[in-house]
Simulated scan of single mutants.
Amino acid sequence: MIIYDSKKWNSLFTTLFKTYKYSYNMRQLLRFIFYTTLYAISATLLNMHYLADLYQIDTDFFSLIGVILSLFLVFRLNSGYYRWWEGRKAWGALVNDSRSLSLKLDSIIPIEDMNKRRYFGRHISNFCMSLVLHLRDSTDLNKYHLEKSDKADEIAEFKHHPNKFGSKLFRELEAMHKNNNISDFDKYFCNKLVQRFIDTLGTCERIKKTPIPFSHSTFIKLFIVIYIIILPFGLANVFGYLTIPAVMVMAFAMIGIEVISEEIENPFGTDANDLPIGFITDTITENVFEVLGIDHEIGYTAKKYSLAEEAEIIH
Rank of each mutant, 00 (worst) to 15 (best):
F268S: 04
I257A: 13
R83H: 03
G66A: 09
K143A: 08
M254F: 15
R27S: 00
T44M: 04
V249P: 10
E86M: 07
Y4T: 12
D271E: 13
R136N: 05
A251F: 15
A43I: 09
F214T: 12
N191E: 13
S217N: 15
I226F: 15
T37S: 13
F252C: 15
M254C: 14
L73F: 05
T200H: 00
M129I: 08
Y119E: 01
R118K: 15
Q28A: 07
T243F: 10
N10I: 10
F13L: 15
K192A: 08
N115G: 09
L222G: 09
K303S: 11
V249R: 09
G87H: 02
N163V: 07
Y4Q: 13
A311Y: 03
K148V: 14
Y241K: 14
K164A: 12
T44C: 01
V259W: 11
H315L: 13
D186V: 05
I65N: 00
N266F: 10
I2C: 00
Y81I: 05
N273E: 13
P276N: 04
G121V: 07
L46N: 05
T44K: 05
T283W: 11
Y20I: 03
F170S: 09
G299H: 14
K7M: 09
N287F: 03
A272W: 02
K304L: 03
T200I: 06
H123S: 04
I68C: 03
A251T: 14
K116G: 01
N191P: 02
N25P: 00
N115W: 05
F127N: 02
W9K: 09
S261K: 10
I198M: 06
E312Y: 12
F13N: 09
P245W: 11
V95R: 10
Q56N: 09
E310M: 08
I111D: 07
F214E: 11
K304H: 07
E312A: 12
F17S: 13
D53R: 03
S11H: 10
K143W: 05
W9Q: 06
F185A: 09
